[in-house]
Amino acid sequence: MSSHIFNIGSRVFSCFTSSASSSLRQGFPVLSTVPARAASKKSGGAIRNKIGRTKPKYRGLKATDGAFVHKGDVLATQFELKYYPGENVSIDASNTLRAAYDGVVVYSTEVLNPYPDSPLYEHVQNGSFLQRRFLNIIPTPLHGKFRLVSET
């Protein structure tokens, strides 16, 4: 009895030949169906560069100049401070500008007056004027919707 190892595709088979089986099969080796060794799972490659696969963030202005917005509506989404919050506009941790009251959106360009702890404070104290874009909300005037009904 002799053994041989055959490669068929990516699988390795062992075969055993004997004098009885060779006489029955006319000299052809008998292949066993048990593979000698196979991979337990496919190896997956690591994705290191995700260029072209990131989802767009759709940042920018969401409300146009002169548009009516409600309280809590998003006015602008931004990565850094491209647009500054003006009157009746709130800002959150991700620099998203939201309307603090119902009203009309007004864009304006104003001279920046930073706080003393700001890194821009030194530039302003040296005499430079920093102009930035501000988003403001002009609130709608409140009308008396209730009237006093006399008790009779």
Rank of each mutant, 00 (worst) to 15 (best):
S108A: 12
A67V: 11
T33I: 12
S21M: 12
V89W: 01
S43L: 12
I137G: 02
N7L: 13
K71Y: 01
T96D: 05
N126R: 14
V74M: 08
L135W: 07
T77S: 10
A67W: 04
F16P: 00
Q78P: 05
T77F: 02
V104Q: 03
K50E: 00
K145E: 12
T77N: 05
S40F: 08
V111W: 01
L61R: 12
A39E: 15
T140C: 04
G72E: 06
N95L: 07
R132N: 09
R37Q: 12
E80G: 09
I47M: 08
K82N: 15
S118F: 04
H4L: 13
K42C: 09
G45K: 10
L75G: 06
D65V: 05
S2D: 14
S128W: 10
L148P: 00
N88C: 00
R132F: 10
E151V: 11
N49Y: 01
Y115I: 06
A36D: 06
L81N: 09
V12W: 04
R133Y: 07
D73L: 07
A46M: 09
I8L: 15
D102P: 05
G72W: 06
L130M: 14
K55C: 02
K41S: 13
L135F: 15
V104S: 01
P116W: 02
T96M: 02
H143G: 09
L130Y: 06
N7Q: 11
V149K: 10
E122Y: 02
D92Q: 08
I5R: 11
A36K: 05
I91E: 12
I91W: 03
V149I: 13
E87V: 03
R98S: 15
G44C: 12
G52I: 04
Y115Q: 13
P139C: 04
H4N: 07
V105I: 13
D65I: 10
T33M: 15
R37K: 04
S90C: 00
S118D: 15
G52V: 05
G144H: 11
D117P: 00
N136Q: 01
F6G: 08
S23A: 13
H123D: 09
L24G: 07
P116V: 07
L24P: 00
S22R: 12
V124S: 08
P35M: 07
I137R: 01
V34K: 15
P116L: 06
Q26T: 05
D65T: 11
F146P: 00
K55N: 10
Y83A: 06
A76L: 03
R53G: 09
I137K: 01
M1V: 10
K55M: 12
P56H: 11
N49C: 00
T54Y: 02
L120P: 02
E151H: 08
A100Q: 05
G72F: 02
G127I: 08
S19A: 13
A46F: 06
I8A: 07
Q125P: 00
A39Y: 04
S32K: 05
G9I: 03
I91D: 08
K55Y: 04
F6V: 15
Q131N: 05
L120V: 08
R98Y: 14
N126D: 14
F146M: 07
R53D: 08
N7H: 01
A93I: 04
S14R: 11
P29E: 03
N126H: 07
F6W: 10
D73I: 02
L61S: 09
Y115S: 15
S23C: 02
G44H: 11
N95K: 09
Y58R: 09
G127K: 08
Y121V: 08
L24F: 11
A67Y: 04
R59P: 03
T17G: 15
P141D: 13
N95Q: 06
